[in-house]
């Protein structure tokens, strides 16, 4: 096995193991830390696919901002004797979860067979993954997607500020 394949198997295995541990950990913070491991292994897999920019974005945005926010919420807003187990004993929840899991796995298998057909036939440009080509495609071919994403983030920001802002009249009562 070449060293590239070994690299892939190690990080893919780590990502799967960590993913399983995310949903089977008893403590919430442990799940968050296993999720961090998932993100970092995914980042390593992106480097293997010759996309260093996406790898760094994965670490910066997912592991560096979103996961920090999740950990903030977990440390600030959980009660110490939160009984998550109550949800696990409910039969209808478990049945619904199983059904959703099977359906989404089936969907993913269908998608994978479809994608391998497309990827085998696409030509690979010479400067795949470099900063210049990334910027060129993002700001020329995919500009509408970029602008809509930024407007969406702005809308979310404004909603969050509005929800968090206290009503001044109610406070002075």
């Amino acid at each position: 096995m070449a060293i590239g394949d070994l690299y892939f198997w190690i990080f893919a295995g780590l990502a799967l193991l960590a993913g399983i541990r995310v949903i089977t950990s008893k403590e919430a913070i442990y799940s968050a830390l296993w999720l961090l491991t998932v993100f970092i292994s995914l980042s390593a897999l992106y480097i293997h696919l010759r996309a260093p920019m996406i790898a760094i974005f994965q670490v910066t945005i997912y592991a560096g901002a979103i996961l920090v926010l999740i950990i903030f919420v977990l440390t600030l807003l959980t009660r110490p004797d939160d009984k998550m187990g109550e949800f696990q004993h409910n039969v209808s929840f478990r049945g619904f979860g199983a059904l959703t899991g099977i359906l989404s796995t089936g969907l993913m298998l269908v998608m994978i067979t479809g994608i391998t057909e497309i990827v085998k036939k696409a030509p690979v440009p010479a400067d795949l993954g470099s900063t210049g080509s990334f910027a060129k495609y993002l700001l020329n071919n995919y500009l509408i997607h970029f602008e809509i994403a930024s407007v969406l983030l702005l809308a979310a920001l404004i909603c969050a500020i509005y929800i968090a802002k206290k009503d001044k009249k109610a406070v002075t009562q």
Partner: peptide, 25 residues
Amino acid sequence: NIDIGFLYIVALGSLAVYGVIIGGW
């Protein structure tokens, strides 16, 4: 000598937060 040295530094700056919060908790 990687081509995205600056982004690597920024990513590590974001990861520096974990030691503090995990140590505190």
